[in-house]
Design a protein around this nucleic acid. Structure first.
Lengths: 310, 310
DNA sequence: ATCGATCATGCACCTATTGTGCACGGTTAT
DNA sequence: ATAACCGTGCACAATAGGTGCATGATCGAT
């Protein structure tokens, strides 16, 4: 309902370049360029300035984008309230999430929605958390399941989003099957402090989780290897190169010569899995129903855990 | 920036029929119909229901329209603030007003704007007050100069508009040149109570002003004739058919065998001339400048009056 | 009861907005 | 210097969105 060109401007404000905006919105770069030019024409404002080989928002542009946050939230809110008031159905619903969330939470959600609302066209997009926020802003998706950095509260009160916690997913340690501790069921981080660690590549979402876990207990682990995919990480561990952290929700095929131990002790690292929606849209019946379904899935996962591990 | 189809829906909410909406917005009836159908499809809501040979808003529709008021006001406000912050220029500016206002207030305004902002395309539309509000809602005009019913406060705090008083235009009495009081300069309503009166046709904006003036002093005049145009009314008076009320701003050609007397005494009827804009837009520099110019014109008019008459 | 008036809507057609793909010019990093 | 990158302009294509007229449905008046 808000002019799509304003949405485009908003996306541009997030990623800074026309090309990235195009990629994110699904337009071509020329289209984005033309849209922004047209937007400036109809508003009679100069929103962009040349800046080196790129373009940059003017003060007016930044002002407009800042104000657009509340405007869009108001619209979402109105739309949600109207949907609720009128018991209406919407036709398209976009979901986003990272791999394990997509598998364990979004898939059942999509399946349930597909059966309860047959004429709703559900679309799931796998994307990492940061990109999920971008996709929400770009209105490509309506709900995202992401992992929140427990340490990083910057995104928590972003005026553009509303977030609800689904569950805390504890991190397990995975060690080679021939490791001395392999017969145990639990271990503490201190016990493992001297092991060579295999982490996600620095800068990734999970790397900061890793460091946060160890700073919490006051030890500094030795990082031996870095992997990008969990599969790779697991393979490294299986090959005896070291140990690693793996979220409980991440599947571990038994054939992989690796065992998984729960972590006990005072430093119990976990990743917080939250659902995020555009601010204002949370009252929408479809969102509400989806959050309910997600919560059910989350509770089922929690119920299946050992008691000492919640 | 708000989807034009939502604007159209809003206009429809005001006038109730597709045809009237079309006339007001400048679209064809089919276009309005198609727009509203498309709007319902995109939102996944049913907004209209068949009602006899026409259509009517559903509860959802009314809800949406009600919420749209604040949404649109927010946008206007944001736009205005951005314009102000960035010292930007807009390209089009629509003005509306009724005949005497158009002549005495809007014409100088348009002329001034045309010289101070050469590349601003100013458009003036003559329309009666009620229609001016419709045109504001339909976004055909951005500023209207209208007469407010002093009695009728319903429109004053409409969430869709913001109004500022420009001046009070006193009503004079016009009498035939051969009338006993014709040599006087002033008269009271009581003195004229027994005269045959010539008014605007019942239901018009000015008719209610007429009745309000006399109920204020507690007499009930005899209405002898009704006219639609002031010219007609003046002609009637000139022909000796009775007396009438004429706003000070309405011109009176001397050749017309009619004299104009100021009204004194406790019941001094006047029409209040106000400028109205869409809520939120009042901070816009262009609106601000326009209001300033209008106020100057209004003050000049006030300054030219006898002192006892302000 | 009939007829005409009024209203909304569907259809054929047309326009113009808005998208894509590609080439180009300017700017920065190697 | 050269290569990589970024944004923009242009020719062209798709499509959203417009008009005008015919149609069907409903209501009021004769």
């Amino acid at each position: 309902m808000i002019d799509p060109r304003l949405i485009t401007l908003r996306v541009f404000a997030r990623c800074g370049t026309i090309g990235a905006t195009a990629e994110l919105t699904g337009y071509s770069p020329s289209a984005v360029s033309a849209q922004l030019r047209e937007l400036q024409r109809v508003l009679g404002m100069q929103l962009l300035t040349k800046d080196g080989r790129g373009v940059r928002l003017t003060a007016t542009g930044r002002f407009l984008v800042a104000g657009a946050d509340t405007l869009i939230a108001d619209w979402e809110s109105l739309r949600a309230a109207a949907m609720e008031a009128g018991d209406q159905v919407q036709s398209h619903f976009g979901l986003g999430g990272f791999s394990t969330a997509a598998a364990q939470l979004l898939a059942p959600l999509a399946a349930t929605l597909r059966s309860t609302r047959p004429l709703l066209e559900v679309q799931v997009l796998e994307a990492d958390p940061a990109r999920c926020f971008d996709l929400l802003v770009a209105e490509r998706i309506d709900l995202a399941v992401i992992v929140a950095m427990q340490s990083d509260t910057s995104a928590e009160d972003d005026p553009r989003f509303e977030q609800t916690v689904l569950l805390d997913d504890p991190l397990d340690v995975i060690i080679p099957a021939d490791h001395p501790l392999a017969s145990r069921e639990t271990a503490t981080l201190e016990e493992l402090a001297s092991e060579p660690w295999i982490t996600e590549t620095a800068g990734s979402t999970y790397h900061s989780l890793f460091t946060a876990a160890f700073t919490a207990v006051g030890v500094t682990p030795r990082i031996a290897h870095e992997a990008v995919e969990w599969e790779t990480q697991i393979a490294f561990v299986g090959a005896g190169l070291g140990v690693g952290l793996l979220p409980r929700l991440a599947p571990l095929r038994s054939a992989e010569n690796v065992v998984r131990l729960r972590i006990t002790g005072k430093g119990k690292p976990a990743r917080r899995i939250v659902a995020a929606v555009r601010r204002g849209s949370i009252a929408s019946p479809l969102i509400q129903e989806s959050l309910g379904i997600l919560q059910v899935s989350a509770n089922r996962i929690l119920a299946a855990r050992p008691e000492d591990d919640l």
